[in-house]
């Protein structure tokens, strides 16, 4: 690391920071665009179809339909950027940004590999170093900001369907945030820390899923709600309210919103992995080293991304009242029970 930095006439810290920023912002972005492909092909396979496989590079290489991503991107860029006349222009323009930024920023705290020492210096594989005091509160804070994108998009569209979608989304996110927070607090309590590095350290022998299976269930469900993925995709609900808050959006603005859903998915999977599946830990290996740990993290991440897609094509959408009932009467008591059980066990010294 120092030699490479010396070659580039940069201090190691600067180089490392630049590299991390590139990885942390580029990684989820790339992964998200890949996920759009996985989603479409996977959905097709689940439904005994084939899915998009016609787009080809230079009309020759089909590569299992992967060029579809590029084709979609080009299409979105070249389309007419239509702004309907009845919208609130400023907010309409700001909304895609408000959706996209929280989605990308959330990943910054996640350690995606084991810290390593090079040239007498420790390098941490997360954008925000441990001991910054924010810890896992940071993704929660960023996640709570995500609702504004939906809300502003919905309101500025000046459209009944959009407003309905936005209101559903905001109500849903607020009600599921509480259950989620309680589940996360249990993890904090068990680990005795709220810094992701320390949480992962605490999962050395046993990943958190096993002792806190209830918490894991609650957290994952809430993550589905937070990312607006299918059993909870009330904000879009295409059978009921056209496309919800996306109704008036087109071209690149739509693409940005659409992509940020997938970035959200990546971030949510990363959170689940960090909190409950030992982050970068490899089973039965105490000290896996950098590459192996990154690999383990990415594999776990992909598994959860697939889970998101898989669930989407398995479960039908809830009804709105069912959603609210589920959030307040099932999720919240469950996570509270989880919290109390663990508090009691800790009090007993187990």
């Amino acid at each position: 690391m120092p030699t490479l930095a010396h070659l580039l006439h940069l201090s190691p810290e600067t180089l490392w920071m630049v590299a991390k920023v590139l990885i942390v912002f580029g990684g989820p972005f790339t992964l998200a665009s890949l996920l759009t492909w996985v989603e479409r092909r996977g959905a097709a396979m689940i439904q005994d179809r084939i899915g998009p496989n016609r787009a080809a590079l230079f009309g020759k290489w089909r590569l299992l339909g992967l060029p579809q991503i590029a084709a979609d991107g080009i299409k979105a860029f070249l389309k007419e950027d239509l702004v309907p006349p009845h919208v609130n222009k400023l907010v309409f323009w700001v909304a895609p940004l408000l959706t996209f930024l929280p989605a990308v920023m959330g990943f910054a705290i996640i350690p995606f590999g084991q810290s390593f020492v090079s040239g007498g210096q420790t390098y941490h594989l997360s954008l925000l170093d441990p001991g910054n005091g924010m810890g896992m509160l940071y993704p929660l804070a960023i996640g709570s900001m995500a609702v504004y994108g939906v809300l502003t998009a919905a309101w500025s569209s000046n459209n009944k369907w959009s407003i309905l979608g936005g209101m559903r989304a905001s109500a849903q996110m607020v009600s599921y945030e509480i259950g989620m927070s309680l589940a996360v607090i249990t993890v904090f309590m068990r680990a005795g820390a709220y810094d992701p590095h320390l949480i992962i350290q605490a999962q050395l022998g046993l990943w958190n899923v096993l002792p806190q299976f209830l918490g894991f269930l609650v957290f994952t469900t809430c993550m589905f709600a937070e990312t607006n993925r299918l059993p909870f995709d009330f904000a879009e609900g295409e059978a009921e309210i056209v496309a919800g808050y996306l109704t008036e959006y087109g071209s690149m603005k739509f693409a940005l919103m659409y992509l940020s859903e997938y970035v959200h998915m990546v971030t949510a999977s990363a959170l689940i992995v960090t909190l409950y599946f030992g982050g970068w830990r490899v089973p039965f290996v105490a000290d896996p080293g950098v590459w192996l740990s990154v690999l383990a993290f990415v594999i776990k991440l992909l598994c959860f991304c697939w889970l998101f897609i898989w669930i989407r094509w398995t479960l039908p959408r809830f009804r709105y009242d069912q959603l609210m009932k589920f959030g307040w009467k099932v999720m919240l008591p469950l996570s509270m029970a989880n919290f109390l059980i663990h508090a009691f066990l800790m009090f007993k010294g187990a």
């Binding site: 509160l137 940071y138 804070a141 709570s144 809300l151 919905a154 936005g166 905001s170």
Partner: peptide, 30 residues
């Protein structure tokens, strides 16, 4: 002020929850 916890809570509670609720009510009665 070297108080990231307060910062995070400020975002979660005030901007994340309370203003969302306020906006929600405004939209509902809009």
């Amino acid at each position: 002020l070297a108080n990231p916890v307060a910062a995070a809570l400020q975002i979660i509670v005030y901007s994340g929850a309370i203003v969302v609720l306020v906006l929600f009510v405004i939209m509902l009665l809009n």
